[in-house]
């Protein structure tokens, strides 16, 4: 049974259709990546799934509506600058008073042991994203939404965070829905990659990668997959990936 089923017939801003005929199901524990060009409406799609945006035509069905927990890693860390790393995590937890041990464990897991009392302004960009990741995982989400969360980081830092993300999701068994314009990132992380066109955004191709081997906690090497994909669908990358992603 799917964790969540999304059917968006139409989503428009000021009469302009942004999303059209999106049909997407998310299985428990799966990792789905949606790849599309910048400005296609990827973030809008995540806002619909997260419940931030309810002004659309279509349906959003959850397997167990009363129990669903959604974590969200935004493009920016979106930490409260006046709260310490620890308090930022505590803020979203259902029972903050009983969460001390869990927060310590999460901070240790994301490599921030001893930095729990630091304010976001005292942490580097990579560290802030680690706190945001710990915050998203703190609620033990059924579904984790990722909106290009590593796009503004340098590649080694981003890769470290991607590995951490894979490891944490494997530990907790949550499903992931990632939107990105970076096809390499999608291929190295996801079990399934959906390709979005733009104006309006609609799914034009689905690529299943679940059988492709990936070592525990490691990223998949996207080079071979990318070549194979290009050979089968020569036009698939037009308008989606930036030249640097073709590597």
């Amino acid at each position: 049974m799917n964790l969540c089923e999304v059917r968006i017939t139409r989503k428009a801003f000021d009469g302009v259709t942004v999303l059209s005929e999106i049909d997407l199901s998310v299985a428990p524990g799966s990792f789905t990546a949606l790849v599309g060009p910048s400005g296609a409406g990827k973030s809008t799609l995540l806002n619909v799934v997260s419940g931030l945006d309810s002004d659309y035509q279509g349906d959003l069905c959850w397997a167990a509506d009363d129990r669903r927990r959604v974590g969200y890693l935004f493009q920016e860390p979106r930490l409260m600058p006046w709260l310490s790393a620890r308090r930022n995590i505590e803020l979203v937890m259902p029972e903050p008073d009983a969460a001390v041990a869990r927060i310590d464990q999460l901070l240790q897991r994301v490599g921030l042991t001893g930095r729990g009392d630091a304010l976001p302004g005292e942490l580097s960009g990579g560290m802030q994203r680690r706190v945001a990741l710990a915050r998203a995982m703190a609620i033990e989400p059924d579904l984790l939404l990722l909106d290009e969360p590593f796009s503004s980081l340098d590649e080694p830092t981003a890769d470290g965070l991607r590995r951490l993300l894979i490891a944490l999701c494997r530990e907790q068994g949550n499903a992931v829905l990632l939107v990105t314009h970076n096809l390499r990132e999608a291929l190295s992380l996801a079990d399934r990659v959906l390709f979005l066109s733009r104006d309006p955004a609609t799914i034009v191709h689905r690529e299943e990668l679940a059988d492709t081997p990936r070592d525990d906690g490691q990223l998949r090497d996207p080079a071979g997959l990318l070549q194979d994909l290009l050979a089968r669908h020569p036009g698939i990358l037009s308008g989606i990936v930036q030249s640097g992603d073709r590597g």
Partner: peptide, 24 residues
């Protein structure tokens, strides 16, 4: 608004939203 969305997505109770997101 972006910080308010954090409270909304994570279903932070209203009292905590007012105290830790709005008030500061």
């Amino acid at each position: 608004r972006q910080l308010l969305q954090v409270g909304q997505v994570f279903r932070v109770p209203l009292s905590r939203r007012l105290r830790y997101i709005y008030l500061p």
